[in-house]
Design a protein around this nucleic acid. Structure first.
Lengths: 352, 352
DNA sequence: TATTTTTACGCAATCGTTCCCGGTATCGTG
DNA sequence: CACGATACCGGGAACGATTGCGTAAAAATA
């Protein structure tokens, strides 16, 4: 099956004009007489003519499309970011090609090569948790491909970056747990090879320190796959709760870790917030409806998408090489609900 | 900034060959000597040459990209479908351009025009709840654009369609509520202008009839916006629970309606499943963790995406016009949890 | 009337690739 | 030795659109 669109040549032939004249008429050039313009415009309108974007891309050496790589769109945070990206991109005549790494460095590289071979004009990337080798990003960037990192950024590459205030978010969450009366606060976090892992861990540690709590390495559990693999989380939770001195609260440093943590706690028969307090990063709309309703740190995801895209379009449309790169940090929001509401009496209530 | 890729012309010039020879060498033509091939291939490899897909698209009059229109990717069901679409598309060398209608017919049309003007080779569409006018779809389809509808299909257009067994899903859910002892079963459903609305409503009604329950129009509430607008849902729930004879169970016919319904019930202080039983269509991963854990009808979303894409690629790559269109119906899965577990004693327990 | 200026349009190159024609060697065969 | 076959490679058109340049006719000027 072929979907044949009407071309400038069709119009030219039908009207007995040259393609140049038609092209100029459509672009309202001063070199074309008003009568000719009128005829061409009306005929084009009648045939529902639209310039072939592929031909334009070839001529102008730009595709007017941007590539996005995230670990997965099913994650609320990323789908919200993508909404922000689309809103800015579409109003500027760009389209968005989304691809998912599913936290695999290998798939990320494939997607990266695929997107660049499809000649996108720029990239918006949140790296996978596995990614340790930034050579390809670097090479691409050096060759002039505009790139903006967000969320999981890479320090080694000098370009625009957009992140939430991960340190503050983690610091606030941990402080809230402390203020609620919890004493042994554990954290489930991403690998420190990931920027968000590092920053959120630092916020957690700083909060403990500032409030006079002893840091305890055994209370820090890393999830290499960021919660994508259930076994990994279960193991981390098992380790935590077979300690002689198990935690009485958990700060989960990422969306999937937060809900995964709740899942594990329920599987263990531990009740929240009585046995264990729980707070974590999450952008899910459903956290309010969970059992118990979750206290969360929420990132301004939509806005992050908007900012990242604006910065990328600046990069793309800049006439001369940009050397002055920005790192935008947007503030997180803490929403307090039942999962951190410690009871005075530490009795074990009935699990509903 | 410009990202300059190496072209066939660069290779030809560097090697003192013509572009035709280089092109043929790269495509392993029999007309080229093994030595020349070797030289060209090695040089191309060294320079990391990749054929310009835009030039190819222009030449071959196909973009090797497919457009997807859904109401929103933040919806678990759709993000899972998209995963299915991507898996098939990518392995076949197609890329996927996703756009969201946000349940607006106007935005849907804009996206449609945008995607076709970007010359996608085909479209996978789940129509918005607002869409009443199918002229543009029809016109596109008549002009030879391959289209596959899924989930929310349109009867007026003869093409491949992929849906879940909505009737059976709704029938099973309603039957389960009846078997659990609920007597006055209400439904929150989409507009019947939507195929899923019609089919699921029919399943609900058939189940009532088959089990000897009187149909009651006042127990059927339509949400025009499919749960996107909170006020609409709240109003529907208000109407339901100000009835002299309010419902004791609800079947929610869509993802957002199901969680929205739970939200509204909790706001009203009604406990589930004691005061009101609840089951609904949902593909969210979190329904198990909700308060209470939700009984749901789950659609094989990933598989639906796969099937839709396979059918679309068939359409695209078919040499001659296809007239034999398929409608694939995949079975739903019912997952029973606490929200439909009616207590023997109808006492009001403490809300946790 | 002769010349210059303006108006309005066409020709052809270009983007990167493929492919239909050619063409020129080299070899084998009669 | 002559001719055809084969192997190997280049020229150029095409895909759809833009654009610099050339130029005819018409209008304005001398």
């Amino acid at each position: 099956m072929k979907f044949e669109a009407v071309t400038i040549k069709d119009i030219a032939k039908a009207l007995g004009l040259s393609t140049s004249t038609v092209s100029r008429a459509l672009r309202d050039s001063y070199e074309i007489s008003p009568e000719t313009k009128k005829v061409v415009l009306e005929y084009a309108e009648k045939l529902n003519y639209h310039p072939n974007p592929i031909a334009l891309s070839l001529k102008e050496r730009r595709s007017r499309s941007i590539g996005v790589i995230v670990c997965e769109i099913a994650n609320s945070y990323f789908s919200q970011v993508i909404n922000g990206i689309e809103s800015i991109a579409n109003t500027n005549g760009y389209n968005v090609i989304i691809s998912q790494s599913h936290e695999s460095a290998e798939k990320e590289l494939v997607n990266l090569q695929y997107l660049t071979s499809r000649s996108v004009d720029g990239l918006i990337i949140s790296v996978s948790t596995e990614t340790k080798d930034f050579n390809y990003f670097n090479e691409l960037h050096d060759r002039g491909m505009p790139i903006v990192f967000f969320d999981r950024i890479v320090d080694e590459i000098q370009t625009h970056k957009v992140i939430a205030d991960n340190f503050k978010g983690a610091y606030d969450a941990t402080t809230h747990l402390i203020n609620s009366g919890y004493k042994r606060i554990a954290t489930l976090c991403n690998t420190v090879f990931l920027s968000i892992g590092k920053e959120r861990l630092a916020g957690y540690q700083a909060a403990l320190k500032d409030h006079g709590l002893e840091p305890d390495e055994s209370l820090i559990r890393y999830c290499q796959h960021g919660g994508m693999v259930a076994e990994e989380m279960d193991q981390a939770m098992d380790e935590l709760f077979t300690l002689q001195n198990p935690p009485d609260a958990i700060f989960a440093a990422a969306d999937k870790l937060t809900t995964g943590c709740l899942r594990a706690l329920r599987a263990k028969g531990l009740s929240v917030p009585e046995d264990v307090g729980l707070i974590g990063f999450s952008n899910s709309e459903l956290t309010e409806l969970l059992n118990p309703s979750l206290s969360v740190i929420r990132q301004p995801a939509f806005e992050m998408g908007e900012v990242a895209t604006s910065l990328l379009l600046e990069l793309i449309e800049s006439k001369r090489p940009v050397t002055d790169f920005q790192s935008r940090v947007l503030t997180t929001e803490m929403i307090l609900r039942s999962s951190t509401r410690m009871q005075k009496t530490h009795s074990k209530p009935v699990i509903s």
